[in-house]
Design a protein around this nucleic acid. Sequence first.
RNA 1: GCGCCCGUGGCUCAAUUGGAUAGAGCAUCGGUCUUCGGAACCGAGGGUUGCAGGUUCGAGUCCUGCCGGGCGCGCCA
Length: 641
Amino acid sequence: MRRTAGSGEDCAGANRLARRRSGDYTAGRMDIDPVDFLGRRFVDAIVAAFGDGFADTDPLVRPAQNPQFGDFQSNVAMGLAKRVGKPPREIAQTIVASAKLDDVCEQPEIAGPGFINLRLRADALPRLLTQLEGDLTREAHSTVREASSWASGSKRVVVDLVGVNIAKQMHVGHLRSSIIGDSLCRVLSRVGNEVIPQNHLGDWGLQIAMVIASLRRRGIDLDSLDLDALEVEYRDANLECKADRQALDTARRIKAGAHRIAEWEAQVAGAEQRLEEAKSTLVRLQSGDGEIVAAWEKITAITLAGCYEIYDLLDLNVTEEHNRGESFYRERLRPVVEEFIASGIAIESQGAIVVEIEGDDTPLLIRKSDGGFLYATTDLAAIRYRVQELGARRVIYVVDARQRDHFRKVFEAVRMIGWDRLPDGSRAELRHVPFGAVCGEDGKPLKTRSGENIKLKDLLIEAIQRAGAIVREKNPDLPAEEQSQVARAVGIGSVKYADLSTQLQKDYVFAWDRMLAFEGNTGAYLQNQYVRIRSIGRKAPPDVRDAAAFRIEAPEEKTLALTLLRYPGTLTSVAQALEPHRLCQYLYDLAGAFSVFYTQCPVLKAETSQLRDARIRLARITERILADGLSLLGIRTLERM
RNA sequence: GCGCCCGUGGCUCAAUUGGAUAGAGCAUCGGUCUUCGGAACCGAGGGUUGCAGGUUCGAGUCCUGCCGGGCGCGCCA
């Protein structure tokens, strides 16, 4: 919310409103999510009772936290007390009297200071479950989501994710952006958005020029390099260009031996020369020099080939077509700065061009005093492209939390110049999704013993190996081929789930034994619950009727049914808040509700075939939602494990 | 020095965005069941939500000030 402050109307909010006011439940069709459609009925009742000025009221309908309070509750009356000028219990009475609820609910009860407690009618759950089931099948889904609250409307959304750097391997630093970004893409797409992933490659600038210069000077054949070798070259080239002035000064200050000082003088002189070479190489690259560009393309191709292997291991829905690196914006940087200057928003300061940001003591630099551009310049160009050319209503940056200040400034600069305006004049939502560091068990950012970044490939292979060892121990009878598939699904799934299941902005501790546990809120636990349910389906006799009447009688059945109905609302909330851990928590709740149901209510061994078929139907919906939810987290499901 | 983020049982995390008695898992202790995949289920103990104020019908959540930890602070990305 704070992020969009000052940006005029918030499109998500406006959309929610439009939805609430267009309730057509009188036409006989019912929506799936009770929180949503009950909420709309409450808003209608509030408007009827207190006037149009209350049309934007949030009805505060929630699943009841305690079964003794019913199935759902609304907390809206207390908040209305001041505005209406009446006691909350009286307001609750008024709302209940004017709300149309009797087709789905028992008579509401008013409790405590003004809570409105709602209990679904016995015949409502089967109807709702039938609709949910229909919506979960692929064909029905596309039609229902246009008409129902399942989606918040079709929107084009850009998600900035992964962010690989040319000439470098992917390392733990890329893990979270990849996993979180990919999952958000899947969820956003699931609720009806047109998602455009954008991989903002670090493929332009002095760093790249350093490697090219170094490789050319030493006559190294690019065709002989793989990504491992290229990365070594990259590191060496950077070191070569780095003048250690401090060491030289120290040597002089402590009056080190002449030999020692001469060594450092040589280092500094050498580094300065290398840096000059790199700079001139960069100029040639920028001016389109054929040889240099060819080398650049080669290096890019080597790097990306290595990265695609990682994408594949991680099952990312990100491909070559989503590459939009810094080089893509190179011709757009000059106009960015020129227009900022022309509009009077950017000014000169100490030779550089800067944008002053209100309430910030340091400005945003968009051009260096030597005329060069900075990565803020590229980000400005990228947002302009994404909003005005791609037509994105939301631009989402899945980038680590340390860049908070940077994005706040860049977004503010964009709003100042108005590049967040879409062709229809509305403003796009710019969102940074900040995530915390991946730490080792010592609480410090995860590194190898020698202090280097851990290669992503090594980390993922270790995950698969560890999962494989566990699977071999727990299920030695599984064929070897299947074992390796399970190891991969469980190993990668565990890493992903650990990453997605807590609040993104917090640092999290990378602990193998915890994330690979088969109990508790883990990926493996959910994968296994899915396997358990699948086995019911496999054993179901052929005479089971798919459309058997639901029979929601036992409390465990009711809890499961109510949990199932929370799925659509969970997805829209994840898409809106951009918090995948809500989906994880939901799936864990669902698996738990099923587990209780399954121990208390015999399914295949139910007393009658009617009851059996009704319970199998519940199990099948659970199975579908678990599979769908896990797929939205980018986690594979299995038949056996 | 300025700014931002985070402090919740022994450990790892939730808390539907200000709602009713702060919930799970691990660990500990006890129980269920002649296994639908037991990789299960039920129960117990364990909390002054870092500290102190404030706002209001109501605060883990919002405001102020401290304490502790992390991160960031003009020409790198």
